[in-house]
Simulated scan of single mutants.
Amino acid sequence: MKLKIEQLDRGAFAPFGDVIACDGSRHYQINDGFAERYHDLAKVDIAADGGRPLINIFRAKPRTLPLQIAMMERHPLSSQAFMPLMPRAFLVVVAAAGTVPTAEDLRCFRTHGLQGVNYAPGTWHFPLIALETEQDFLVVDRGGPGRNCDEVAIAGDVFVVD
């Protein structure tokens, strides 16, 4: 099965979490007009069972297309946000929270390089898909007690193609 790449936008991504981007976001001036605050861009949810926020940087190596999607993961106790630290596009493969996804449940989105994503708790997703070059991401997720990462195999041959 070939997984079609869609352009990332807030409406299409809403079932899976939040798009983190300045365009179209609520904002206002701060610091005597020397800064613009883009406010409340994602619903960070990490408090389950005594969790605490973790601020991380992930360095993703580039992947080549076609890319086989043979597994998915989810974080049932928290959201997980990824914001690129360089203006480069990356891909996001997701499926709705709930039961184990099948190939038909998967969707793939391409960011425009200045967008990040925040996966809602339990949203199935494939690990980071950097394109063309190594890429750093600011990642906000949960630390604390409890199992917060489930992985499942995806049956069949599912490939992201450009």
Rank of each mutant, 00 (worst) to 15 (best):
D157V: 14
R74Y: 09
L8K: 03
A153Y: 15
D136W: 04
A153K: 10
S79Y: 12
E73S: 09
R10L: 04
D157C: 13
F137T: 00
F90S: 05
S25R: 09
I55H: 15
A48R: 13
R10E: 11
L91R: 01
D150Q: 14
N118A: 10
M1E: 10
E36M: 11
L91W: 01
N118Y: 09
H125D: 03
K2F: 12
D45G: 04
K43W: 10
I30V: 10
T123N: 02
D141A: 10
R59Q: 12
M83G: 02
E151Q: 13
F126E: 05
V92H: 00
R26T: 08
K61T: 12
D157N: 13
C108G: 02
L106R: 04
V160F: 06
F159M: 13
G51A: 06
H112A: 05
P101I: 01
R142V: 10
G116R: 08
T133C: 12
I154L: 11
G116Q: 07
F82S: 04
Q80C: 06
A96I: 07
L138F: 12
S25F: 11
L91Q: 01
G50R: 06
A120D: 09
G51Y: 06
L138V: 11
R74P: 07
E6S: 06
V19P: 02
D136P: 02
Q7F: 00
A120T: 04
K4V: 11
V44A: 13
V19Q: 00
G51D: 05
A42S: 13
C108Q: 00
L91M: 03
I30Y: 00
V152E: 10
H125I: 03
G116C: 08
L138A: 13
F90Y: 14
A120F: 07
A95M: 07
I69N: 11
A42R: 07
T111F: 02
V161I: 13
L67E: 01
D45P: 06
L41V: 04
E6R: 05
T133G: 05
A89D: 01
G143K: 09
A81S: 15
D150H: 14
Q135F: 03
A60H: 09
Q29V: 08
F16I: 07
I5R: 07
E134W: 15
D49A: 15
G51S: 08
T102V: 06
I30M: 06
L77E: 03
G98S: 02
H112P: 03
Q115R: 02
N118R: 06
N56P: 00
H39V: 09
